[in-house]
C-alpha cells in the first residue's frame, strides 16, 4: 500500500512524545502524573515500533508483536504503581513525591 508519509514524521512525533514524557517525570510532583508521563514515554516507543515495522520490515510483524508486549507489560507496571500509591496514601497521607524524604534522596 503506497503512502505519502515517510518515517521521518514518525521519528519526530515519537521523539517529541518521549521528550514530553521525560519532562513530566522530572517536573511533576504527583505520583499519578509521573506514572502518566512514563506511559507517554512507552507510547512513544510503540509509535516507533509500529512505524518502523510498516516502513522497513512490512513482510514481518516483529515490531507490532513487540508493541503488544510493551502495552501489556506497561499495564502491569501501572497497576503496581497505583497499588503502591494507594498504600502510600494510607500510610503517609500524601501522593506528593517531595514528601517522600525519609530516605535521603
Amino acid at each position: 500500500m503506497a503512502t505519502s508519509l515517510n518515517p521521518t514524521y514518525f521519528i519526530f512525533l515519537s521523539a517529541a512524545l518521549f521528550a514530553i514524557g521525560v519532562y513530566g517525570v522530572i517536573a511533576k510532583k504527583n505520583i499519578i502524573a509521573v506514572l502518566v508521563s512514563i506511559e507517554m514515554m512507552l507510547a512513544a516507543v510503540n509509535i516507533n515500533l509500529v512505524a518502523f515495522n510498516k516502513f522497513f520490515t512490512p513482510e514481518a510483524f516483529i515490531g507490532q508483536i513487540f508493541a503488544i508486549f510493551v502495552v501489556t507489560v506497561a499495564a502491569v507496571e501501572i497497576g503496581l504503581g497505583l497499588a503502591l500509591a494507594i498504600a502510600l496514601v494510607r500510610k503517609r497521607g500524601t501522593t506528593n513525591l517531595d514528601d517522600f524524604d525519609w530516605l535521603k534522596w
Binding site: 506514572l35 512514563i38 507496571e77 504503581g81 503502591l84 502510600l88 503517609r92 517522600f100 525519609w102
Partner: peptide, 8 residues
C-alpha cells in the same frame, strides 16, 4: 517509599 522510588 523505597518501593515507589524503585518503581518510578
Amino acid at each position: 517509599e523505597a518501593g515507589i522510588k524503585y518503581l518510578i
